[in-house]
Design a protein around this nucleic acid. Structure first.
Length: 520
RNA sequence: CGGGCAGUGGCGCAGCUUGGCUAGCGCGUCGGCUUUGGGAGCCGAAGGUCCGGGGUUCGAAUCCCCGCUGCCCGACCA
């Protein structure tokens, strides 16, 4: 049906790009690997931010902001960290420009200590923490920042991997290793809850193997989601940094018993990558599907009429419905808002919106496609037939089901209930999809064959980096995590992750199954 | 960063092999009329550094060189 979107079955990567374009979420910038996040895409990010920010604050964290530029020497202070990030850092070497004598310009003014554009902020924040922490009374220090970071990626994809991206990075310092470990777990749980409750994106929690660990961390935990093509998307990470950065930046404190010790730090983050994850979790061949809780526009009313007389009646009727859905107060504010002629938009508390599409340049069917491709959860069609019968046709975006509703039933409570039901249905659908494509595998041959079709595979692992590397080299699949849950639902029933067995590749003993998949 | 493909009004493309006259087409946009329950029709109009820079030539969208950006594959990574 959609003319501008390649079907998923034909070319999944192209479909992904087509959906972003059709939904008007983002576009490429003139700079390689960078993107312009357009208003509709940014509105989705704002909703994610708002919800996450609340969860962070409810757990005692506060926001702060640290510089974009990091002294080059800082990166080198933590050996593993520099090893992991050195290759992908943008470096500032000059302080200005000058004419090159040939009509162009060239850098001038080489700077003494070169600056790194932050790829992540452990080092610059570690430096501050060293000043901020004096005694055990200063701990825990629970900081988050919303920022952009830059990593010089070789291969980029809109939202999933861009050279510059937006994220939040939490950085905390604690008195004991135990507290830091608890914090690391706490934030992983917050990410998992957020992903499921808000993004309707089911995730598996677990620890990363040493090979996949964050550069400089003692332990890295992650939430992993399955995309519709069966590939995994690492959707959030939480790191227990031990005392590595505390030692590198001399973050010490006086203990309760007069001693001097290094703090234990954590860091954790999610990024605009989540938008890519949402797209690939829910959307279909008709375009974007957004979970209601992050949809910038909750519902759109599309009026249908022929003659002028009809037009008047229909629009009055549609405005009545809009008023009932939005509430009197919000509706009144909208009536005095600027720029509200073609798309009459009512802003609800919490910044969700309902709008009445008054554009005369577009016919109803075109409007249907327009809003469908942008992932608006509910479309309410109102025409002369509905006016006569006291009804309205409600179309639910995820399955495009149509329900003829009584006008009187359409109110604020109905809207909330309907959107909540849709939110839940999306999570259920995504979870069912993942379960269907999750299975236990006990032979390497079977694994190699199955991995071609995508999906999650729970297989025994002897714990060696050699086995892990060999599987990665031979199949492009990696260990996504050592699952946290004892049981994981698969197509053929629950799968134990704790039952001992043997690694099908090496034949050596294995304490339990780990999660293998190809990943983005 | 290696290999392949591509870049032409806002979008999608043709033209390039074999250099030549005013660079075409569809969609979209603007104006008008007619229309409106799943991407309407007619009439008229606007809109172009042919990715950038150099070169060959009387003449370059077209041929050559260098660079930039995108897509796919590989290595690397959130």
């Amino acid at each position: 049906m959609a003319q501008n979107i390649t079907p998923r079955a034909e070319d999944y990567p192209q479909w992904y790009l087509d959906v972003i374009k059709a939904a008007d979420l983002a576009e490429h910038s003139p700079v390689r690997g960078c993107m312009v996040i357009k208003p509709h895409g940014y509105a989705v990010w704002e909703r994610m931010q708002r919800d996450l920010d609340r969860r962070f604050k409810e757990t005692g964290h506060v926001n702060a902001y640290f510089p974009l530029f990091i002294p080059k020497s800082f990166l080198a202070k933590e050996a593993a960290h520099i090893e992991g990030f050195a290759m992908e850092c943008a470096v500032v070497t000059h302080s200005g420009l000058e004419p090159d004598g040939e009509g162009g310009i060239r850098p001038k003014g080489r700077i003494e200590e070169e600056l790194i554009v932050r790829p992540t902020s452990e080092t610059i924040i570690g430096h501050s923490f060293a000043n901020w922490v004096q005694s055990w009374r200063d701990l825990p220090l629970l900081i988050n920042q919303w920022a952009n970071v830059v990593r010089w990626e070789m291969r980029t994809r809109l939202f999933l991997r861009t050279m510059e991206f937006l994220w939040q990075e939490g950085h905390t310092a604690h008195e004991t290793a135990r507290e830091a470990a608890e914090e690391t777990r706490r934030m992983l749980e917050i990410y998992a809850a957020f992903a499921e409750e808000v993004l309707a994106m089911p995730v598996l929690k677990g620890e990363k193997t040493p090979a996949e660990r964050f550069a400089g961390a003692e332990h890295t935990f992650a939430i992993e989601a399955m995309m519709q093509d069966g590939k995994a998307l690492q959707s959030g990470t939480s790191h227990d940094l031990g005392q590595n950065f505390a030692k590198a930046f001399e973050i010490t404190f006086q203990t309760r018993d007069q001693g001097l010790e290094h703090v234990h730090t954590t860091s954790w983050g999610v990024s605009t990558r989540l938008i890519g994850g949402v797209i690939m979790t829910h959307s279909d061949d008709e375009g974007l599907i957004l979970p209601p809780r992050i949809a910038p526009i909750s519902a759109v009313l599309v009026p249908i009429y022929r003659k002028d007389a009809e037009r008047k009646k229909v629009l009055t009727y549609a405005r009545d419905i809009l008023r009932a859905l939005a509430g009197e107060e919000a509706f009144r504010r909208a009536e005095t808002a600027l720029g509200n002629q073609e798309l009459f938009t009512v802003v609800l508390p919490g910044d969700s919106r309902i709008l009445l599409d008054l554009r005369d340049s577009m016919r109803p069917p075109e409007k249907f496609f327009w809003w469908e491709q942008r992932g608006v959860p509910l479309r309410i069609e109102v025409g002369p037939r509905d006016v006569a019968a006291g009804k309205a046709m409600v179309v639910s975006r995820p399955d495009r089901s149509k329900t003829l509703c009584d006008k009187g039933a359409l109110d604020q409570a109905w809207l909330r209930t309907t959107l909540d039901a849709q939110q839940k249905a999306l999570l259920d659908r995504a979870r069912a999809m993942r379960i269907e494509r999750t299975r236990a595998v006990d032979s390497y041959e079977a694994f190699k064959e199955s991995i071609e079709d995508g999906g999650f595979f729970l297989m025994h692992w002897d714990g060696s980096a050699e086995t892990e590397a060999r599987i990665k080299a031979e199949t492009k699949a990696t260990i996504r995590c050592i699952p946290q849950d004892d049981w994981i639902d698969g197509a053929e029933g629950p799968i134990s992750t704790r039952e001992p067995g043997s690694d099908p590749v090496s034949g050596k003993p294995s304490p339990g199954r780990v999660l293998y998949a190809r990943a983005y």
